[in-house]
């Protein structure tokens, strides 16, 4: 009897402790989000998207260049990063399954995911910006891609390894060549996981600032030239939040709100697609 009471007490204690910590985690998230929504949403207006930067001290203006720049830089990063990550992960999980080199790459990718992003920024600065002699959007995209590749690669590897081996054998048993097995069976089976991986890795880089500081830098004007410095949302937020002007802070809040919303929406979209696929 005594023992039972003790068990129940410990059980309740553990339950309340885990509930408490769960709420603690959610609390901070909600705190940040609500702060963002209150300060950010109120500062949002159309000119934020439609107008360009104005000289410091002047009121009005927007962040059009930063939005477009962000879009261009992230898009290029995705175009570089996804294929590399996907194919690299495919090599590790499929063709190179039992080879030492694949294991080595996998371990390095693991290490890479925990490298501070500013180190990636300085690295790209050294290998691209310095030799080219100037900052460029392309260098920024490469820096983001470097961060993205290991994330994508690891997710791909893990998702493909979840596909039961027997499924591949069943396809082989019909005489299917390996590349068709991968494209038609394995990728399709792992689709939801790969999609989540893609979304996660895009979300991972969409909010990065440090790698861009040394690479794409910033630009006070709207630019479409990827060989030149380009404004990005995160760097602009960084600059505006640090600036002395009130309307800069306002815009930084608004931009933070937008970028958070973007990450949130991509994640939700991904989840919805997953749900829809399973229902079907």
């Amino acid at each position: 009897m005594n023992n039972r009471k003790k068990r129940e007490l410990i059980g309740k204690l553990f339950l309340s402790l885990s509930v408490f910590t769960a709420f603690l985690g959610i609390f901070w998230l909600l705190f940040i989000l609500s702060d963002l929504i209150i300060k950010g949403a109120s500062a949002i207006n159309w000119s934020l998207f439609s107008k360009n930067f104005v000289p410091p001290g002047l009121s009005g203006g927007g962040m059009k260049a930063a939005f477009i720049g962000q879009l261009i830089i992230v898009s290029i990063a995705v175009i570089i990063g996804i294929p590399f990550g996907l194919l690299g992960g495919t090599f590790i999980a499929e063709y190179g399954r039992n080879s030492k080199i694949a294991k080595l790459i996998s371990i390095f990718a693991d290490l890479m995911t925990s490298i501070p992003s500013i180190v990636v920024g300085t690295f790209v600065y050294a290998v691209m910006v310095k030799p080219m002699g100037h900052f460029s959007a392309l260098a920024g995209a490469v820096a983001l891609a470097v961060i993205m590749i290991p994330v994508m690669l690891k997710t791909t590897e893990n998702m493909l390894k979840l596909v039961p081996w027997s499924l591949r054998e069943a396809a082989f048993a019909l005489g299917t060549p390996y590349y068709k097995v991968i494209f038609q069976i394995v990728y399709k089976n792992a689709m939801t996981g790969l999609l989540t991986g893609t979304i996660l890795s895009v979300a991972r880089i969409a909010g990065e600032t440090a790698p861009l500081l040394f690479t794409s830098l910033n630009n006070s004007f709207l630019s479409f030239n990827i060989n030149q410095p380009m404004a990005s949302l995160t760097v602009t937020i960084y600059r505006y939040a640090m600036g002395p002007y009130d309307n800069w802070h306002q815009m930084a809040w608004a931009a933070s709100f937008v970028i958070t919303l973007f990450v949130l929406l991509t994640t939700i979209t991904g989840r919805l697609i997953i749900k829809w696929r399973y229902k079907k």
């Binding site: 039961p164 027997s166 054998e169 069943a170 082989f172 048993a173 019909l174 005489g175 038609q184 089976n189």
Partner: peptide, 30 residues
Amino acid sequence: DNIELRSKIGMVFQSPTPFPMSIFDNVAYG
């Protein structure tokens, strides 16, 4: 020619292995 051989000698495995596609496409795969 493994495709030829394996279409003449088919295999069914221990646990069911439907491909991630429709019923029709599964059967039409080979």
